[in-house]
Amino acid sequence: MTEKVIIAGSGGQGVLTLGIFIAKIGFSEGKNVTWLPTYGAEKRGGFSFCYTVVSDEEIFSPVVESPDTLILFDQRAYDVYKEKINQQTYVVVNSNLVKNINKNNKNFFEIDATKIAKEINFIQAMNVVMFGAYFQLKKIFKIETVYNVMKQMLKGKKEDTFLKNKIAFEKGMEFFK
């Protein structure tokens, strides 16, 4: 099993954190993982993307040229990576911010993650909603690992932060059930 993911969006949307999250889940399940962020000049609002690779085998290049999955948070992200979409690619887009698309692929999934995150009063968890959708669609990770890693990453935060993230994750997951 090798899963190569590109996550893209704008700074502040939780692009890099989601990449680390997936890497940590893969690591916890005993896989080889690499996570490579962009380190752009602009801190906020700039284009942001990261590559995450999870594999049973040795990972040679952490740079993802042909992704198995694209998780795209906004229009600019879609526009940059649409060329990489082929018939096999899983594409999950935040339909709130990606409107102008050319849907010519059977694995193309839209979810209004911004709206869902707003509905649960936790707009920061848009990325977690997106992950819920991805988790459900690809079914490559165990749900216990997701919760364990989530807990571990939120260590030191307020008690209800984990619960809110858990809800965000489940809302995203249920969307494609």
Partner: peptide, 11 residues
Amino acid sequence: SLTDVNFSYCP
């Protein structure tokens, strides 16, 4: 004297 290029600075 400013070009049409958007500033790359943060908000």
